[in-house]
Design a protein around this nucleic acid. Structure first.
Lengths: 343, 343
DNA sequence: CATTAGCACTCGCAACTGTTGAGTGCTAAC
DNA sequence: GTTAGCACTCAACAGTTGCGAGTGCTAATG
């Protein structure tokens, strides 16, 4: 168990290191003002803290830096939550504007978030459990090209252009779209592929000649697996961090950022609430030098998406956690309103 | 005027330097096989080439590297065009698939281009002179939210959700959309704002009560200035180039990449055909260490867009120029087909 | 007289050295 | 229990040196 004094010293060291990125020496702590002990006393405590694994040295006579265990303790016990009314309000205003569709809001939030923190923000995007199909439109551009448009109740629009196969009659196309609209209105997006395979296939078989020919085609046009949407903001913020003065590190960071699927997996598992993953606690090799803080937003019980910030282990945990808490609440509220309005 | 031998030596030096990024010494050239002279002779020629400004030394006893003037001469006189059938075909297949809309094709081309070259590709998306409005759709999501969708004859879909102002009646909204569709079908996108201000305003005034209230609102929803679309591929490729082993250079590169408007300007001016801009020939300060190669694609006489590759001045000009030529032809052809089909 | 061999010279680079200063651990005194 | 003092450690930085790649010049050569 740590003594009061040890807690104080640990806190001062971590705060200082987070700010300056330089190892913290006993003299500096003693002069800090909040610690009324001499450098020698502090040295003894620091040695103890190091024995317990909360601190590390970069070399035998350097100042101390926090270990991952140190950060973990700091995050779990030493962070007094602060309110960031101003910062949260910036995002609140974007969300509540009501003028944008939800995806734009998410995108903008990601950007603001990264600007406010100087880290890289990642937002996984509302998942579609509660999103329902509103309407399907088919607009023909010419005799043999058309664009299909899907609109959901959240205002999300998906579209795809395609060539009309020569063996499909325009009247058949129209019929199909009518069937789709009649049957699929209000169906959750996630259930569409299944519905399409069973019910729609049966109906089309009945009403449309030669339906097999167009079935596969139609399926590809309307119900392509829609991948999870990932919004990343401030990729280049990482360059401003002094620990990334190494070109190789930068390279590996960017090459990881390009594997979006892996990042999505990273965030997907995260349960409800705020979760802080520090350094090697991350399972993905590429971000073992980073900390990842995730928060999820909801609609009712179901989880909708995840907001995350990726930065060096030397992260402003206090600020980031407060900010993410605020943002996740705002997004949860906004979602609630959206669906209430669009029911 | 340069002698045959000087040309040969200049070419060998530039080719070698482009490949290895190391200064080229006289001995290496002599051993190259294509230059049947001793190192001493070559040294004399190199000194002359340096006096003429085609070569530079990095320090008093280093090998030579090409100067910008050297690259310029190389590009203008020494590049024998090569055919890159294989590479161009990769892109050709994407373009001709016909399954994708034009913007997707452009996006994919940008990515392939950067993969093939290991430089950063920038495509300034098709300008809209020839793009015409096909249809406007308004889909209401609930009593007070709706999404507006614009479709063009190229299959481009633009959409925007908005809250319906309480003082607009649903029937009025429908009327407006009808008017818009009737009057604006086939009108080039670029002329929309103007048409809207004059003709449409007048019509709406006649048929819709209280039209002023909704006019501004509608205008914002349908005819926001649509910014030039810029597709950038392989931003992180630049990290692979050995000349970018300096964190500051990387920082300045990425911070430039974020000013998309500036990049757009850079490409916009470029006239028809291939244009190579080497180092300080670039007017933008931030890319004075880079070379930019642009090619435009057309529809008939009008220029539609620009494809560009940005890389170090030590660029594989031969390959890049051939590739861009091929791609610009493909895109011009594809555009021609598109519009012919969609007329 | 163009070409080449030879040689002194230059300079970046890497390895090594000495110095400095921040910081530690330990001990003895308060 | 706390602190002052002191010897010790080590990264960082600035010189120093030797090496090697490369040059420019000169004199010899076919």
């Amino acid at each position: 168990m740590l003594t009061e004094r040890q807690l104080l010293i640990l806190q001062v060291i971590i705060d200082d290191f987070i700010e300056t990125a330089h190892p913290v020496g006993s003299r500096a702590i003693s002069k800090n003002g909040n610690v009324p002990y001499s450098a020698a006393t502090i040295r003894n405590e620091m040695a103890d803290l190091e024995d317990m694994g909360f601190l590390e040295k970069t070399h035998s006579s350097s100042g101390r830096i926090p270990s991952e265990k140190g950060y973990r303790y700091y995050v779990d016990h030493l962070i007094a939550p602060i309110t960031l009314k101003k910062d949260v309000n910036i995002i609140k205003n974007i969300i509540q504007d009501g003028f944008f569709e939800f995806e734009q809001v998410v995108q903008m939030s990601a950007e603001v978030l990264s600007k406010l923190t100087n880290y890289t923000s990642i937002i996984l995007g509302p998942e579609l459990y509660e999103t329902k199909l509103k309407q399907i439109q088919l607009i023909t551009l010419s005799d043999h090209t058309a664009v299909a448009i899907l609109v959901t109740n959240t205002g999300h629009v998906e579209h795809r252009s395609f060539s009309i196969p020569p063996d499909i009659k325009p009247s058949d196309l129209e019929k199909m779209v009518n069937i789709l609209n009649e049957r699929l209105n209000g169906v959750p997006i996630v259930r569409l592929p299944e519905m399409f395979r069973t019910e729609i296939a049966a109906l089309m078989k009945r009403y449309i000649n030669d339906f097999e020919k167009s079935y596969d085609y139609l399926k590809a046009v309307f119900f392509n697996e829609n991948p999870v949407k990932l919004y990343i903001g401030g990729k280049s913020n990482i360059l401003m961090q002094p620990e990334f003065n190494d070109v190789d590190k930068i390279r590996s960071f960017y090459s990881m950022m390009e594997r979006e699927d892996e990042i999505a997996n990273l965030l997907k598992g995260s349960e409800s609430g705020i979760k802080v993953t520090i350094g090697h606690e991350n399972e993905v090799e590429a971000i073992k030098d980073f900390s990842l803080i995730t928060a999820s937003y909801h609609l009712g019980e179901g989880q909708m998406g995840t907001i995350a910030l990726l930065g060096p282990t030397r992260m402003e945990y206090r600020k980031v956690i407060s900010l993410l808490k605020g943002l996740s609440n705002e997004m949860t509220d906004a979602l609630y309103l959206w669906y209430k309005n669009n029911e």
